[in-house]
Structure formats: structure tokens, C-alpha cells
Design a protein around this nucleic acid. Structure first.
Lengths: 191, 191
DNA sequence: CGATTTTTTGAATCATATCAACGTACGTGG
DNA sequence: CCACGTACGTTGATATGATTCAAAAAATCG
């Protein structure tokens, strides 16, 4: 049993002990060291990952050969290459640990039968996707309406302790500008 | 009965005739003229809108008092202020018709009971949200990795007939730059 | 037809990228 | 525990893509 996962689900739907058991039986616990690759382009994404402990990033390498970070996954976040899963195509992204991590994997093949057995989990995943969509739309809003510098200040004010856990070049990549520019912002602020 | 909506659903899940009836009974058909406001900031978003015919846009007014287009909704697209619905807060966006439109509304209060009666629709909405999320992530990718000009060319190549249906300033807003800049891109191309 | 909306054009300006070099920190093997 | 190599961060000079403001021109609508 994975109480941490169950607690997260309880915020959306109420499961019976039997249903909780069905779910946890399907989850596979995996442990990774720092900087381990969990998924890479070309592979089919095995399923959806729930981060129990640690920190991962999802990114791809763009035309200019820069790493572009799509998402971070920290404790209690689901992460996956949904495009690969839904459209049955090879992944275009890497998923890699930043810190040593403990992660639960729900395999694609297990998901449909599980959701059929436990319809409340269908609701849970629907709501989770909806929240992810809202977050993604909000990120687009920030990209449109804030300068890079504003976005940096906003993000660090919002997640001060998270910013401590990642190297600056990853934050720059996630926010959509160069590490050099981030360095200049900080230099400016110190004055 | 709304065969167009049912056809769209059939691409994801198979409903029985009785289930189709249950769904269609809950949908409310609404007709709008050109430029009618369907939702505006401050109101709670009534539910999710499925466009049968016509064209709508979802946008908000940003700090610089410019309209920022979040999404277009054309035939067979769902559109809603999900943030308002999920978090029970007033909407931050407008939804407005661009062309005269026929739209089905699934009220928030009807959604939960409907999904309980017809669990396959729960699956349908989960998959629909997942696709919306993938599309949103892809849009972020374009914002990061393409210049405004590249994004314009890509979009018009991708949706040549859609681009004809909307004024240029709306396309500029959706793609995240000024109408003036769009005009300059076109001027350049003609040479 | 006039009124409004939409698009175009020019000049000045701004935000951020790029390239290149240098500085600093960090972790690993001897 | 030190030295070395690699990864990360800083800084300066120059280049570029896009914005802003203002005004005129063109298209659309009742």
C-alpha cells in the first residue's frame, strides 16, 4: 500500500479499502539514482509515473540542440509522455531524475482494466488531467503576458524552495530563456 | 438527438442508443448571432460548450488592456472556462462568437449525474481532456522554439482555411504578437 | 454613403539572444 | 585529502526580432 498516493487521491474521490488495494496492487515501485533516465525519445512511454519522493524533469532536445524543459515532476505529481501513450507513438521527450527518486509506475496495459474495476479512479484521472490542462493554459498566459524577467520573479516568489533544488540553467530552460539572461537578472537584482 | 455530437463521441467510446438518449436529453441547444458574448469575466461558467456550427473565441483582457486569445472553438470542439468550473470561481475569460453559431451546453450540475449514469462518458471526457492537455503542451513547445514569424507560417500552412475565417488581429493575438508585426510578415512574403 | 473596423507603413526603441571568454564550484580517482 | 577535469555560472560586446506610437490607407457594415 502507498498511503501517500492514496492521500492524494482522497482529495478528489473516496475509495473503499478494497478499491485502494486494487489500485496499489497495480502500481509498480521503482527507485532511481540522481540523473537516471526513465524515458527517452524513441521508446514508447510505459505508463504514468507518480513521484513519491525526489524530483524529475521532462524535456526534449530542440532544433538548436538545446534542452527544453517541458515539466518538472516533484512529490505527488504525475508525469508521462501523454502524446506517446494516447497516440501510440514513440516518445519525443526524456524523463530524467534530478534527485534520487522513488516513483510509482502505472503501466498502460493496467490502466484500462483498473479504471473499469474502479470507476471512481476514472473520475480521479479525469480531474487530474483537467487540472493539468488548466495549469498548462495558465503557463501559456504567462508566456504571452509577462516578460522573461517578470516570469522569473513571479516563479521564484511562487516557489522559493523549489528554485533552490534545481540548477539555474534548468529554471531558465523551463521559463523559456537563456542561462546567461537569468544570470543578468540576478546580477541586476543584487544592486 | 445530436448526431454530430454522437459521431464525435463514437471516435472514443461506444454508447448504446439508451445512453445516447440520456446524453442528448441533458444537452441544451443554444443559437447565437455573430459577436454575441456567451461568457464574460465575473460570471461563473455555466458548463461546457460543444460547437455544432460556427466559430467562437475564448479570450481575456490582459494588464496592457489587449485582448489575449486563449483558444478558438470551431465545429466539434469543446470550450469552457475550466478554471471557473473546477475551482468554483468567477470566470477570467470571455467566450464570444466570431460567426453565428449553434452550440450545445452541458450544464455543470448535469455533468456529474450523467457521468455516473454513463461511465463510458467519463472515459470520453477523460480522453478529451488528455488530448486538450497534449495540444496545450505542444503550443508551449511552439512558443519556445519558434520565432513569431515561423509560428505564423506554420499555423497558416496547417490551417489554411481556418485562417480565412478570422480577422488578422485575432490570429496575431492567438499566436502571441502584434497585428502590426503580422502585417509586416505578410508584406515581406509578397516580395 | 458615411462610420467604424481592420490593415498597413515608418521610425525609434526595447528585450533578449548569441558568441566568446573567463571564473568558480564540485565530485571522483589517485 | 588533493588535483584535475568537467559542469555550471558570470560578464561584455554585438546582433536581432519584435514592440510601440502615430498616422494613413483600405476594407467592411448598416
Amino acid at each position: 500500500m502507498y498511503p501517500q498516493l492514496l492521500a492524494h487521491i482522497k482529495r478528489q474521490v473516496q475509495l473503499t479499502p478494497a478499491e485502494e488495494q486494487l489500485l496499489c496492487d497495480r502500481m509498480e515501485l521503482k527507485k532511481f539514482k540522481k540523473k537516471e533516465i526513465i524515458l527517452e525519445p524513441g521508446q514508447h512511454c510505459k505508463g504514468e509515473y507518480f513521484v513519491l519522493k525526489g524530483l524529475v524533469r521532462q524535456y526534449y532536445v530542440n532544433a538548436k540542440l538545446n534542452e527544453q524543459i517541458v515539466q518538472f515532476g516533484l512529490e505527488n505529481w504525475w508525469i508521462a509522455d501523454h502524446d506517446s501513450i494516447v497516440n501510440h507513438v514513440p516518445a519525443g521527450t526524456y524523463i530524467q531524475t534530478i534527485e534520487a527518486s522513488e516513483i510509482l509506475l502505472l503501466h498502460n496495459k493496467d490502466k484500462a482494466p483498473l479504471l473499469e474495476q474502479v470507476p471512481k479512479l476514472e473520475t480521479y484521472f479525469r480531474l487530474t488531467m483537467q487540472r493539468a490542462f488548466i495549469a498548462s493554459q495558465r503557463r501559456i498566459g504567462f508566456l504571452f503576458n509577462q516578460t522573461d524577467e517578470e516570469r522569473f520573479h513571479y516563479f521564484t516568489a511562487m516557489f522559493p524552495d523549489f528554485v533552490q533544488r534545481i540548477p539555474q540553467y534548468m529554471l531558465a530552460s523551463y521559463l523559456g530563456f537563456t542561462p546567461q539572461f537569468l544570470s543578468r537578472i540576478r546580477a541586476k537584482k543584487e544592486k
